[in-house]
Simulated assay, not measured.
Amino acid sequence: MTSQLPAVAMARGDRSVMPTVTSPVASTTTVPEIRGDTWLECSVWYQSMPGSLFQCFCVLLCIAFMGSGHNSVAALYTHVLCACAFFFMAIWGVIDSCGLDIVIWSLVIFIINVGQVAYIAYKDRQTQKIFDSDMQTIYNMRFLPFEITRQTFVDLVTCKGCEMLTLSRGHNYAAEGKTPIEKLSLLVSGKIRVSRDNKVLHYITANEFIDSSEWQSLKLTANAKSTYKVTITAETDCKYITWKRKYLLALLANRKRLGKLVNHMIGRDVVNKLYHLNTTQFNYRGYRYDIRLPLIMSLRDDVIQREKRKKDSALGMESPTAESTSPTVTSSSPTSSPPMSSSSPTSSPPVSSSSC
């Protein structure tokens, strides 16, 4: 045990237990065998490496920090290798270094990394339960291209006020003029018909927002108790995700990047609906309009009123024209009658004369 004290003291830098080395030049001079006698240079170096455990710690730590990424796999990779590295560091502190502080800190960091691994594995398992085939399709089509992590998507579909609901065939999602606008829904599967006054406007298929136009219309109107301008009915059995407006706005306010992405997707969905409506909806003069948005509703009413005024003015212009054309017809009748009458009554005398 006493033979190991100089080595331990050398490792920890304890000068009181350090052995002395006799100089070959002057036997009377003794130089303490220490590391780091000054801040500028080390006077004496170890004769060998600290050991294989310390080398394993350094290699594992280097490999752990070489990993990159923002998903759960990258996090598991980093934390598992860090836990192994600091476990070797704790063993090296017990066997070779004999330093209590090294052992304690290594064990603390090891436990933290193990806890992170367990937490990530638990969250990943919860994520796998949510990601069925439909959810995976929505994530791959709408969120993965923008590098939104699976965990962020899970937070969006599991936040407060978010529900996964079903709608049977023939049932209404919203009734025209009755259902208040207080939610946003994304169709997961099925097909939905949008109509007004028993006229079909368009259809909604999977991976499309059901009421994106109404969601955008609330930004244009001051009335927070607006109702749907259309009737939305399920053509088939449908499944959809719905968010309550209040809680969704709170979540998007905290997640700035997610909020910009969701607003972009809603705006794009509205543009697609307008495009489909404009290709099918015309009035009697060929004007295209969308009856779902309030501003365009007012434009449609203005167009109808303007066309009505034009019709009334056109009828007013036709009445004097008809009166002006009627004398011409009557005046032409006497002028044309003499030839007609001369042909019938006067034709007899020439015939009679010729006979004579």
Rank of each mutant, 00 (worst) to 15 (best):
S337F: 14
E318W: 10
G67S: 13
V154E: 02
K191H: 13
R15T: 12
S212A: 15
W243Q: 03
S189M: 03
S52V: 15
C98Y: 02
T137L: 11
G99A: 12
Y284T: 11
C162Y: 00
L293R: 02
E214M: 06
S324V: 04
M18D: 00
S3V: 07
L251H: 14
T149E: 10
C98N: 08
Y284H: 13
D134M: 04
Q47F: 09
N172W: 01
R292H: 00
S333C: 07
S319M: 09
R125P: 00
G170W: 10
P327W: 13
V21H: 06
N254R: 14
Y203N: 12
D132K: 08
C98L: 10
S319L: 12
S348H: 09
C84M: 14
S27A: 13
R300F: 07
N198L: 09
I91W: 04
V25A: 12
T22G: 03
V154R: 11
P50F: 06
Q136S: 14
R306H: 11
L100V: 12
Q47M: 07
K311S: 12
Y247W: 03
K246S: 14
T328S: 10
I130V: 14
G316V: 01
P32S: 12
A9L: 00
S217G: 05
T321Y: 09
N113F: 02
V94F: 05
K129W: 05
L5D: 03
F86H: 08
S326T: 11
K178C: 04
V329I: 14
F146W: 07
R288M: 04
T22N: 04
K160N: 08
H276S: 13
A83G: 12
Q47I: 09
I138A: 11
K183L: 00
F57Q: 10
S337M: 10
Q136A: 09
L201E: 05
Y46R: 13
L277C: 10
C84L: 15
Y203A: 05
A11R: 15
T166E: 15
C42W: 08
S189V: 07
R306S: 14
S27E: 11
I204W: 04
T236S: 15
L156A: 03
E214S: 15
Y203Q: 11
N140Q: 14
L201A: 08
N71G: 12
F131M: 15
V94N: 01
M141Y: 02
F282N: 04
T20F: 13
